[in-house]
Simulated scan of single mutants.
Amino acid sequence: MENFDFYAPTKMLFGKGKAVCLPEEMRPFGNRVLMVYGGGSIKKNGIYDTVCGILKDSGFQFWELGGVTPNPKIETVRAGIAMAREHQADMILAVGGGSTVDCGKVIAAGYFYEGDAWDVVKDPSLIAGALPVFTVLTMAATGSEMNPTAVITNQAVHEKQGVHSSHLYPRASVLDPTYLYTLPAIQTAAGVADIMSHIFEGYFKKTEDAYVQDKFSEGILKTCIKWGPVALTEPENYSARANIMWAASMALNGLCGCGKEGKWSCHAIQHQLGAYYDITHGVGLAVITPAWMRYILSENTVGKFVDYAINVWGFPRQPDEFALANMGIDATEQFFVDCGLPVTLSELGIDDSLFEVMAKAAVPYAQLDTQAYVPLHEQDVVNIYRACL
């Protein structure tokens, strides 16, 4: 196990009705709030009215920035920074899923930066501080409610870029599982795929003796496999929503990946798809992940895939390790299919015309040729894309 620092300072307010506790956490920072949210679903399901009512009753002044889209755009961040400065906001309240939280985080960081907001996305060392960020989560997927990372898209230059800074940790996050009841099935399924991918990226690493982290990871994967289908068939099953919601936070708060070296592969490959085709992140990961697994399966990696097949999917050990490894991979792909997710790029209307362009960007983006679990060069990434058609 490698040396590591584990730091997860976000206060998690978990459970039904916990949004009423938010003002107590926010009040020490002032009373002027920029509330950031997405396309309007929170107005249909009542969450908007609940949050606004809590803010009004607690004496907060607040202004609204709506319209945050999946794969949040740098233009929205810029608009949010301008609005926050105009109203001298004391803090950001992001009400929504990971895209909304990510947008809110970069607004918070860009507030104190005099240049263009894209600068801090490209170079997080420029982030010297940020407005306090609070979140009310309405989707379980990215873990952004408990980590210092955001992902922003700049369509003008076809880049989807992750930014990481200790200044981006939310101060407190409300996780009310009932807020997930009205999610469309595809968003629930994509969220589960995203959670699982976060675990895969840390689970499949070169470090071999991080036993505790791997057991955490296997447990979270089994949670997704158990409760994801229940959430899809019984949208108002509290146990399903609660377990998936907490799994999302635990998957990407550093707990499962600490002490394990190496860069992420599938996210780097998928981010290029998102930069050009604006597809849902979890959907893209559901397509990429099984193809990547099959591509990197070798004598060097088969042992880890055997562990995965046995400990996560429950397959009995057998002499043919490669057959067992492929059973685990096939089960992963079938799980995504059963959840209603596409598993080919063709289903998303994507052809091979940009594979070389995307591969050229993906490799340096995450140092895939030197830092990945299995090093990948441009042709390798192209081959993975082709295997997804």
Rank of each mutant, 00 (worst) to 15 (best):
L93G: 06
A82I: 09
R32Q: 12
F60C: 07
V51Q: 09
K43Q: 15
Y48E: 07
F60I: 08
H87E: 06
L55K: 03
G97W: 07
R85G: 11
T50R: 14
I92W: 05
T76P: 08
P28H: 10
A84G: 08
R78F: 10
P23N: 12
I74A: 08
E86I: 02
G30V: 10
G59A: 08
R32Y: 03
C103M: 00
D90I: 02
A108H: 00
G59K: 14
N45H: 12
E64F: 01
S58T: 04
M26R: 07
A79P: 04
R32G: 00
M91F: 01
R85Q: 14
G97Q: 07
V33N: 03
R32A: 08
G53R: 13
G66F: 06
G46R: 15
I92K: 02
R27D: 00
G39K: 13
V101H: 09
S41H: 09
Y48F: 15
T50V: 12
A94W: 05
A84L: 10
V33G: 10
N71W: 00
V33M: 08
L55D: 05
L93M: 02
P72R: 11
G96N: 07
M91V: 03
Y37C: 10
I74E: 01
G30S: 04
G67Y: 09
A82H: 12
V51K: 08
V106G: 07
A82M: 14
G40M: 12
V68T: 10
S58F: 02
A84F: 11
V95K: 05
G40H: 11
K43E: 13
N45M: 12
N31P: 06
Q88A: 11
N31H: 14
P23Q: 12
I92P: 00
D49N: 15
A79R: 15
G59S: 14
S99L: 02
V36P: 00
D90V: 01
D57M: 13
I81C: 05
M83T: 09
M91N: 02
T69S: 13
S58P: 09
G40N: 08
R85P: 01
F62R: 13
V68Q: 01
E25G: 01
S58I: 14
E75C: 05
G30K: 04
L93F: 07
D102F: 04
